[in-house]
């Protein structure tokens, strides 16, 4: 910690600045609570760090694998649509607690997911939710003007495509099976996985097409 940093609170939001001073009142509160919990042996610093590492390692890859399997295996897709929890467990992915409902996009019907009340999200399959998913703007508008919201994500849905918005709860989470892109006939499951983006499984974007599959977005 240099002197120059001492009163420069703009650094508090740098993700890697482990020793940057807190920039907001609540960040002091986080320190106070953590110190007390560790001193009272309710938690350990090691357990907190291990949990952070586990969360950091979670990505949407498990969700992508589920969707790719559903694309290539109609029987699996039927099982996934019938019982999401059991179907993802087949692939070794635990989804305990809330019910998991998979919904399939078709040329005639599109689904998108929101949690208007808070931030419910299929974390075991998709990792941490993006900031916008938890934002007031997305939560408010996804149910009142979903086509406008989709357009902000660059997804312009033809008027004749039915749009269903599903509202997650503490007890029920959704996984969208996006349309399999044209031009992927004969692709292996492994190759298809790369096309299944996080946003396509939330329903705000289509899956990547073979042409756009060079992989920088999420």
């Amino acid at each position: 910690m240099t002197t120059a940093h001492r009163h420069d609170r703009t650094h508090a939001h740098a993700a890697t600045a482990d020793h940057a001073p807190p920039g907001h009142e609540w960040e002091f509160l986080e320190i106070a609570l953590r110190e007390l919990l560790i001193e009272k042996r309710v938690l350990t610093a090691a357990a907190i760090q291990a949990r952070i590492d586990a969360v950091e390692g979670a990505t949407p890859i498990q969700g992508s694998r589920v969707v790719a399997r559903a694309w290539v295996d109609p029987a699996y897709k039927a099982r996934l649509l019938a019982d999401g929890n059991a179907a993802v467990a087949e692939l070794g992915y635990g989804f305990d607690g809330p019910k998991l409902v998979a919904l399939e996009n078709t040329p005639a019907r599109h689904h998108m997911v929101v949690c208007t009340l808070c931030s419910c999200y299929p974390k075991p399959l998709l990792g941490l939710s993006p900031a916008w998913y938890k934002s007031r703007e997305y939560r408010s508008r996804a149910v009142s003007e979903p086509r406008a919201v989709l357009a902000e994500f660059g997804t312009v849905l033809p008027e004749d495509v039915e749009l269903r918005v599903v509202d997650s709860t503490a007890d029920c989470r959704y996984l969208i099976i996006p349309l399999r892109p044209v031009g992927t006939e004969g692709w292996t499951e492994t190759r298809l996985v790369d096309l299944v983006t996080r946003d396509s499984m939330i329903g705000v974007a289509p899956a990547r097409t073979p042409q756009t599959d060079h992989g920088t977005d999420v």
Partner: peptide, 17 residues
């Protein structure tokens, strides 16, 4: 807040602190 009026969505994804 479902259905409440609100502005454009900030789609940026800042790293988690």
């Amino acid at each position: 807040m479902g259905g409440a009026p609100a502005g454009p969505i900030d789609r940026s994804e800042p790293p988690v602190t």
